[in-house]
């Protein structure tokens, strides 16, 4: 059995100036929101991407460096090789949940919204961006948009909208995916309102299966202990502080 399975792009959707969402011809039915796959472009590289939908498989990619740009440039019929799903995904808990994210991080949250709808859990989403041209498409639930410049939705960042919402309504769990500092602020806000919180973390990954140790954050491994972490991650000495480069060198976030 080959380790990688092949998936062919059936649709490449430009969601905004940065993010492209790829839809593939294969399902990945056993994957949970928050889990990731390792996408391999033979002869080029292999990197982790969060699952943004499973029937069929969807992935939201933000164009950053060479690999992600290549993925964003893919067209119908192009093939990728993938292994996974790996890691611990979101745990759907409670009756009423809040999803907070922005950029490609909103992909896995939209997948969670779909699952919540199927399980009859009430979900609300907050999706933020710097400006209108960078917003993601809405989730399968009530979606509040925010932009830093006020060009669409509420003016300000996701935290502004989150504070407004939490002043009026109670949520059991807040799910968040996006830049680490944003997630940190979201988690503290959730904690202050006595809600649970689940965050999706990223660190440089090599094996993706808990052997090489490269994706460590403190004594945790993002690829197997995460990428989903609960509020306990706020106590981790490297959370929001240390990122490790491809060599493993500590650099400040």
């Amino acid at each position: 059995m080959p380790i990688h399975q092949i998936a062919t792009v059936t649709k490449a959707e430009k969601e905004n100036g940065i993010v492209t969402t790829l839809t593939f011809d294969t399902p990945l039915s056993h994957a949970q929101p928050g889990q990731f796959v390792m996408l391999w472009l033979p002869g080029f590289d292999e990197k982790p991407y969060g699952v943004a939908g499973v029937s069929p498989l969807r992935i939201s990619v933000g164009a950053r460096g060479p690999f992600s740009k290549k993925l964003c440039g893919m067209e119908k019929g192009d093939r990728v090789w993938l292994r996974g799903p790996y890691g611990k995904g979101f745990e759907l808990k409670g009756k009423k949940i809040l999803l907070v994210g922005g950029g490609y991080g909103f992909g896995p949250l939209r997948f969670l919204a779909e699952v919540a709808r199927k399980r009859k859990v009430s979900a609300t989403a907050i999706c933020g961006a710097r400006s209108k041209g960078l917003l993601m498409l809405p989730a399968a639930c009530k979606t509040i948009f925010t932009t830093d410049d006020g060009s669409a939705g509420t003016k300000g960042n996701v935290l502004v909208a989150m504070k407004e919402l939490l002043a009026k309504e109670r949520f059991d769990v807040v799910y968040t995916c996006g830049p680490e500092r944003m997630m940190s602020a979201v988690a503290y806000e959730a904690k202050a309102h006595k809600a649970g919180c689940q965050l999706l973390l990223e660190r440089y990954m090599k094996c993706g299966i808990g052997i090489c140790g490269h994706c460590c954050i403190g004594d945790k491994l993002v690829c197997i202990d995460g990428p989903m972490f609960g509020l306990e991650i706020l106590e981790n000495p490297e959370f929001c502080k240390v990122w490790r480069t491809k060599t493993g060198k500590r650099v400040p976030i």
Binding site: W40, D45, K206, I209
Partner: peptide, 10 residues
């Protein structure tokens, strides 16, 4: 930096 990925598979 080591090699590019894939660096390990099972």
């Amino acid at each position: 930096e080591g090699h590019a990925n894939p660096t390990m598979v099972d």
